[in-house]
Design a protein around this nucleic acid. Structure first.
Lengths: 330, 330
DNA sequence: GTGAAAGCGCTAACAA
DNA sequence: TTGTTAGCGCTTTCAC
């Protein structure tokens, strides 16, 4: 037999379809007894309201999207996967359906997949943002800030993370601290960079350019750059890397050169990815609660969608340094 | 102004809504000239067919889901994230909308999110599978096999992977090869376990139970188990770990005991996750093309949905050992 | 090749 | 509190 409709329930329970509808969507507007009758009939029939018909009648889709805005081959790296997980978790306890994709794919094929809200992760193009806004789609940004737009951003407290690292390293007597930087999303790249400079300044350590090395975003590139860095006559006693992958490169370079970590050179990463505890020695890193960030995004998006005007323009999620063997001399 | 509907296009182009509809869904059933007129009008209006109204009229949702069936806190680990990526990639070039969730969340809240097909990743409960089948939802399994069901499974060639590893190790003269095993999904656990045994047999190496060690699925557990293993009087010269995380534990244990990898003990992992090249020494591992597996899943699901009856019951995706420093003596 | 019209299953005024 | 009814925007027979 076909799947039962609201008419079947109406007939079986002896009330109108409107009442059946109310029994499901506004239970308190139906007399207790009637509602029970309806629910019993629905149960007996195995009836489930059709999401599509509902969307049709209400003129809304109940759909939101999480779009990853980056160009790599790997779109779901650990960082974005964790944010995504947070979003999914929270989405599951709402009535919204979550679509996940990349910005590129969306623009290519996302037509006609009407959504009411979108979370843009990473380097969202202004044109993309405004195209959503033009369509009346609510937008929340994560790991990014867009000047000139009135919309909520969720970011990690990178400044504080860098400060904690430099505090930690200087406490162990390090003064010659190098930064190994790579090109990631424009936001992360500039913010982490500046956070490092600021933290160094706060400790009155001058950062001559030689203390900052740029490399690609893969280990191999980081390793090569680190080999050069660690070969310099004025070798840094500590290296702060932009993320854990680059930090792993520093450790590899040190090993290759016969230097010991942390005795000859201390290493600290960023993100506290799962690889930190796989490495030997274990890698100190700034823990970022990506899952939480994703959850916050979804909360703010639903707030926006329910007409809440009190949604904060910027949410900064705290971070905390996890110190491990790579930077602790016993 | 409101978003334009098919009526607006109909009016502007001077044809009926039926023709507008055909111009979009069955272009070849409309005269060339008429179609151009319609498309021009649509373009001018910025018209996009409403997916909801279409779903309503056609009585189908065009929605499919990717459900992760595992109990961990982390649902999107690198392995599943890669499969997921493959699925997403392919889904984006279809008209299907992809919902991603966990089996648990789905069962809790998945009501009324009607879907036409589902990809079940990992340990899918038989009851879940049959509940989908009862609803007429097409099912494809990945990294799992369900006896008693008539549905496509996509898995990696674990047997061959294990064989390649043992071939490789024996070629370097190893005979005392231990297995470090952990409890993962039931399918993976049993298949990898048996694949190891078979491969050892093929080389005429007897596997006394002492050569097989079980541990948890985290590094720390693997490290502890490995320390014990490597302390044994008859220390293995090589360890084959169930996955890369456990393999990292072996390396950590070796370092802790002052053993050199690969000189004192060779290590090989499974999955070829991104951490392999972060480790020192780099980890040899069996490369599994998860992305491809995801793509295949989606292809088979769409084939199923389009009524194709030629969908293979089982697809085995080839794997290949990536040898790196952890198992190569120079 | 094209048009008229009847739905698809539900919601939301408006009435009662 | 409950029922009547008119859509929501599109597809799809069935005529022409």
């Amino acid at each position: 037999m076909d799947t039962p409709t609201i008419y079947d329930v109406s007939r079986l329970s002896g009330v109108s379809t409107a009442t059946v509808s109310r029994a499901f969507t506004a239970p308190d507007r139906v007399r207790e007894e009637t509602r029970r009758k309806v629910l019993a009939a629905a149960e007996a029939l195995g009836y489930q309201p059709s999401a599509i018909a509902r969307a049709m009648a209400r003129q809304q889709t109940d759909k939101i999207a999480f779009l990853i805005c980056k160009k790599d081959a790997t779109i779901l790296d650990e960082f974005y996967a964790s944010i995504c997980e947070g979003v999914m978790r929270r989405a599951n306890s709402t009535s919204y359906q979550l679509l996940i994709s990349t910005a590129a794919d969306w623009q290519r094929t996302g037509q006609s997949k009407q959504i009411e809200g979108v979370i843009l992760a990473g380097d969202a193009e202004p044109s993309l943002i405004s195209s959503f806004q033009r369509q009346g789609v609510a937008v929340v940004l994560v790991n990014h800030r867009a000047s000139g737009f009135e919309l909520p951003s969720v970011v990690a407290d990178e400044q504080n993370g860098a400060r904690q690292v430099i505090d930690h390293l200087t406490a162990y007597g390090h003064r010659r601290i190098a930064l190994l930087a790579g090109r990631f999303s424009s936001y992360i790249t500039s913010v982490r960079y500046n956070a490092f400079l600021t933290a160094m300044q706060e400790h009155g350590i001058s950062v001559d350019d030689s203390g900052i090395v740029m490399c690609g975003r893969d280990v191999e590139s980081a390793t090569q750059a680190s080999v050069e860095l660690l070969r310099r006559p004025e070798r840094p006693t500590a290296v702060f890397a932009f993320n854990d992958v680059l930090a792993a490169g520093v450790i590899k370079a040190a090993t290759r050169l016969g230097l010991r970590v942390p005795d000859d050179v201390a290493v600290v990463g960023f993100d506290d990815s799962s690889s930190c505890t796989l490495l030997t020695p274990e890698l100190s890193s700034v823990h970022v609660d990506c899952r939480r960030m994703g959850e916050i995004c979804l909360e703010q998006l639903t707030a926006l969608l329910s007409g809440d005007t009190e949604v904060p323009r910027l949410t900064v999620v705290p971070v905390s340094l996890r110190t491990r063997a790579s930077s602790i001399r016993l």
